[in-house]
Write a protein that binds this DNA or RNA. Structure first.
Length: 579
DNA sequence: GCCGTTTTCGGCCCGACTGTTTTCAGTCG
């Protein structure tokens, strides 16, 4: 029996929530399954590990009943409770929920009253007039459903964080140009929380005349279709296929609206419960007191202060311990892009990069860095232009000359000579130790045969950690967003080995990688590991990817001191020399 | 089904927008 991944198990609980909702079961039980599903999806380690340690019920949202169900799924690959639900509603009915405008009540009626179990059947029913026989289904509803089916069939894809940031910033620029009354505007939602992929864009605007901003938004040239528009909210489809939602509020409500619109849903529910405990009802408009009066907040700081908490950075707002930390005064001072002084993983034209070393170095200097490491690929199967011992020595001379020129001009900038050496499937390195010993810094990464068992994938990296010349493990899990799952690396074991051997774990900032991810970073830091955030740039422009890595580190609760490339050159040199 | 700075039982976030309605349910975020 193939073992179930966290993702598989999260899917089961998500399906249970959908089916229960279609069956009109208790909405709080539905919410409980949904919350557990989300929590499981974000875990840094396999559920089997949590169970082995007896820690399943410490996962927020997982209690006795769901812990037992996780155990059953891990042991048998099945869940009797889920099987029984499927006898009452075919799981394919869930597909109807993907149609915008069709929720659980509608899906349930479509199934019970017309026997519809798929998008194709729904389309036929809508076109044939059969849908119109249902009470409450007028012409507009049916047209909406037909449009919704087309949207669902366009297999809505999540967009990479980097791409979403670009689109959001373009949208904000356009809105600023079109709405002169606009006082303030920003993106919110999962984009502001820095999730690695983003489903839709949430835009918040402040203006005295909110309606004028809504009108300007819905008539932007970027907008292909208006889904809905009211006095203060609008939802549109952009020409590029992304959905964008706008909330426009008076400037005095900016804080509450931004908090509301940033989410996450779980964070907001928890926050509103805290407000309730103090007799306050919180919404995007502010705090409603028991006597009906409204307390508005122009800043998020005021929003959190009202319930006695410090401001919580958006990247932490997942209801995964941030409230407890905030109450205890234990929120970390998160690393910021301006803390970054170095980039320790990048390529030049010596291997597969697109620029020479000097160009990369000058681009790094322009970003204000004090040092970089040039880490071209080692020669290894499947990699073109990888460097062998001889070419590495030639490269060393070029770097020495560049450093000498900087020193002669009194420029406080250094280039470290490194390599990105391949880790073979067995955990050996693709260059001999005596060659690695000549380098200033060694990044070790796995590139091929990433589909291994959890034991093999973990052992492979730990063997590399134990090599005394290895300083950094590059993109540890090898994931490629949208195309390749993370290798099943045991983060705890890797982090413990990294701590013991004083090896840095990388957050690779490549838009498709963001590897390690936030939850893994958080776990590694808890175990005492130190990380490094690197661009893996192959072009000077790619150095800007650092921003994405910093966001990912923040999602992992990283403080600047825990990130080795925030250290000065001297401190880092000292660290290297003590290894 | 989960959970506890009032609770181990009795709660569980909140409001805008839409369509088809004469007063509101469903959906969405």
């Amino acid at each position: 029996m193939a073992h179930l991944t966290n993702h598989d198990i999260a899917e089961v609980f998500s399906a249970i929530a959908d089916l229960m909702e279609i069956l009109d079961e208790d909405r709080f039980r539905v919410q409980a399954y949904r919350r557990a599903s989300d929590a499981i999806r974000d875990l840094p380690a396999p559920l089997a590990t949590y169970r082995a340690r007896g820690e399943l019920e410490q996962i927020p949202g997982v209690g006795k009943a769901i812990a037992e169900k996780i155990g059953e799924l891990l042991d048998t690959g099945e869940l009797q409770y889920y099987n029984r639900l499927q006898e009452r509603v075919p799981p394919s009915v869930r597909a109807l929920l993907r149609v915008p405008g069709v929720g659980p009540r509608t899906a349930g009626r479509l199934y019970r009253e017309l026997g519809i179990t798929s998008l194709a059947e729904l389309k036929i029913a809508a076109e044939s007039g059969r849908l119109a026989t249902l009470k409450g289904f007028g012409a507009k509803t049916i047209e909406g459903i037909l449009q919704g089916i087309r949207a669902a069939e366009r297999q809505e894809r999540r967009v990479l964080l980097a791409h979403a940031l670009e689109i959001a910033e373009a949208l904000l620029d356009a809105l600023r140009g079109a709405a002169p009354a606009l006082r303030q505007a920003t993106y919110a939602g999962s984009l502001r929380r820095g999730r690695p992929t983003v489903g839709d864009l949430d835009i918040l605007a402040a203006a005295d005349d909110a309606l004028a901003v809504v009108r300007a938004f819905t008539t932007l040239p970027l907008v292909a279709r208006v889904e809905s528009a009211g006095d203060e909210k609008a939802s549109v489809l952009l020409h590029n296929g992304m959905q964008a939602d706008l909330i426009a509020v008076p400037p005095g409500m900016w804080g509450s609206a931004l908090q509301h619109f940033t989410g996450s849903k779980a964070h907001n529910i928890r926050f509103r419960e805290l407000a309730q405990a103090q007799g306050l009802s919180f919404s995007e408009h502010g705090f409603r007191r028991a006597d009906g009066t409204l307390l508005t907040c122009a800043t998020e700081e005021e929003v959190y202060a009202t319930v006695g908490l410090p401001w919580i950075p958006p990247e932490l707002r997942e209801d995964e311990g941030e409230f407890e930390a905030a109450r205890a005064g234990a929120l970390p001072r998160l690393v910021e892009l301006s803390d970054i002084r170095a980039d320790l993983h990048m390529h030049s034209a010596w291997s597969d990069g697109h620029a020479d070393i000097r160009t990369m170095a000058e681009a790094a200097r322009a970003r204000g860095y004090s040092h970089i490491a040039i880490t071209d690929h080692s020669a290894y199967v499947g990699l073109t232009h990888g460097l062998d011992a001889e070419r590495l020595r030639a490269q060393r001379q070029e770097i020495a000359a560049l450093n000498a020129a900087y020193a002669a001009r009194g420029v406080p900038f250094r280039i470290l000579h490194g390599v990105e050496v391949d880790i073979t499937p067995e955990g050996n390195l693709a260059l001999p130790d005596d060659v690695l010993a000549e380098l200033d810094i060694v990044v070790a990464s796995a590139h091929i045969q990433l589909r291994q068992s959890p034991e093999a994938a973990t052992d492979r990296l730990i063997r590399a950690v134990r090599n005394p010349h290895v300083d950094i493990i590059g993109h540890p899990t090898g994931r490629m967003l949208g195309s390749r799952e993370s290798a099943p690396v045991d983060i705890d074991a890797l982090a413990r080995a990294a701590v013991e051997h004083r090896v840095l774990l990388e957050i690779n900032s490549g838009p498709h990688r963001l590897d390690l991810d936030g939850p893994a970073v958080r776990r590694a830091l808890e175990l005492g590991a130190t990380i490094t955030i690197n661009s893996d740039a192959h072009h000077p422009d790619n150095l800007a990817w650092m921003r994405l890595g910093v966001i990912t580190a923040r999602r992992g609760w990283a403080a600047a001191a825990q990130v080795a490339n925030t250290w000065s050159y001297d401190v880092f040199q000292e660290w290297l020399s003590r290894r």
